[in-house]
């Protein structure tokens, strides 16, 4: 059990306060830093809410040696796992 607001909710309201109460008043040379803070808060909130697929258990040397070149199952698992991470860090860049 955790108290409400939970970690995700705290991050979300912190980001809203940043956007509404602080960002408009930042001098131009600090705006990028403000946007980066906002981006980090959003990413952390998405990370807390996400359920991650497992990273496939694979030996790197086997990939390098070509033993998985035609391994569609591994490829699909890697793709799903990378997509889940990308949806946390930059959902705008993920096409379906």
């Amino acid at each position: 059990m955790s108290d409400r607001p939970d970690a995700k909710e705290l991050l979300e309201i912190a980001r809203e306060a940043l956007a509404n109460e602080l960002l408009p008043f930042l001098p131009p040379d600090k705006r990028l830093a403000g946007l980066m803070v906002s981006s980090a808060l959003a990413m952390a909130a998405r990370g807390l809410a996400a359920t991650m697929p497992p990273l496939p258990d694979v030996v790197i040397a086997d990939i390098r040696d070509g033993r998985h070149d035609s391994d569609k199952v591994l490829y699909e698992a890697l793709l799903a796992e990378a997509k889940a991470r990308a949806l946390i860090s930059n959902p705008k860049d993920v096409d379906d």
Partner: peptide
């Protein structure tokens, strides 16, 4: 550094696009 930290998290989208290009 926040900038470096956020750059570190760009790896996900880069790996995802790399996989899409190498199916």
């Amino acid at each position: 550094s926040l900038d470096l930290a956020l750059t570190g998290r760009r790896v996900a989208e880069l790996e995802y696009q790399l996989l899409r290009m190498t199916g």
